[in-house]
Design a protein around this nucleic acid. Sequence first.
DNA 1: TCACCAAGATTGCAGCAGCATTGCGGAGCT
DNA 2: AGCTCCGCAATGCTGCTGCAATCTTGGTGA
Lengths: 223, 223
Amino acid sequence: MRILLIEDERQLADALSVALRKHGIVTDHTMHLADAIELTHQNVYDAILLDRRLPDGEGLTFIPELRRTGADTPIIVLTARNEPMERVEGLNVGADDYMGKPFLVEELMARLRAVLRRPASLAELHLTAGRMLIDPLHLSVTVDTIPLDLPRRELLVLAALAKRKDKTVLRSTLEAAVYNYEEEIQSNALDAHISRLRKRLLDAGAGVAIHNIRGVGYLLKEE
Amino acid sequence: MRILLIEDERQLADALSVALRKHGIVTDHTMHLADAIELTHQNVYDAILLDRRLPDGEGLTFIPELRRTGADTPIIVLTARNEPMERVEGLNVGADDYMGKPFLVEELMARLRAVLRRPASLAELHLTAGRMLIDPLHLSVTVDTIPLDLPRRELLVLAALAKRKDKTVLRSTLEAAVYNYEEEIQSNALDAHISRLRKRLLDAGAGVAIHNIRGVGYLLKEE
DNA sequence: TCACCAAGATTGCAGCAGCATTGCGGAGCT
DNA sequence: AGCTCCGCAATGCTGCTGCAATCTTGGTGA
């Protein structure tokens, strides 16, 4: 873990560096805004600690400057300027957090952790098949990023097949995927769905084919 | 944008709901921890505001409980318990930010924006679609830099659609984005919003179209 | 190999659930 | 007070979907 500390009070900066090192954090330190931008180009930081009052200007100006380069590095502003409106100002230009001096190192660490916490990758329930990306949770299908809208029942059939891509899916399984126990079907409705679905997938160039296994069920195969 | 407010002071809660509403945020409110967990299971929130002193316990216990379910929803703790060590405590159990009472609503908004902007968050700072630039945090929409002002609810619908541009958004998701659980709708209010929104987008030449996917939901597509 | 037939594929059709539109009136804001 | 927003409901429309009729396919047995 590596962070950039932009701070002109040498004593505080040194104390912080030591404290952070105890937490296994590598700290780069500069006193000047001009150097700061340069440093962010040369290194990838996990976070940036930023003072407002600096020898060469207001520290906050650094934030939009950095954001414009596309970096979303978390920034925590550390400053004596801690009036409510000043905090709002800091957060609104893109800071991720704002701490008034003086502060406990423990609190800084806690806020650092808060800012750095990344989401555990949410269960990615995305299915792919051919050129399609299927999101059964949101009921959406895209072919090469072009959205493909399918009627509800056809979509359910497709999702059920894609979930077991390259494996046969029993006819009864498909029926269960599309109809609840209240909806009985006494016809070849499922076959009709398959047929219409095939046509739509073909038209969209989805890169898949639905094969039939006689007397058993169906199978989705990539081409 | 939808948030959950866990707060037992009714007066503060009401005031916050109103204030947040003015910023286009839909607020669900509960006074009890037990209900809170239930609500997070039933809805997807963009953020959670959490009081510490609650009738049925210490609010902080809610945080690990929520995290254990895999949710990484940003949490801001709002409390009178604002000693440095108490703040550390809050942040260390997984809060994303910590604010002492009393506070300015402006600062809360600023911190909300900061928290939602974090890479961990799903919320985007700016959404683009067609010729539009949408800033859901500031409730502004521009078409080729010309501001377009939309009624609150239409804007919520648009933002929800734009966030998942080119993907279907379930009807229920849209309803959740626009209404909190207290506001029941027994009509086609959502359809009406869609209809009016379409007309406005057309008049403004926004370069997008809202498609319907029968029985599923809607989809925002660029032209 | 060929005929036979059951299983599957396709497609027109009608019914209807779901959607679009719009006027109205109440509520809320300035 | 005047305005916009917004929920509601009436109306009309669209296209999904179940059904059935018809055609095609592929497995089976003599």
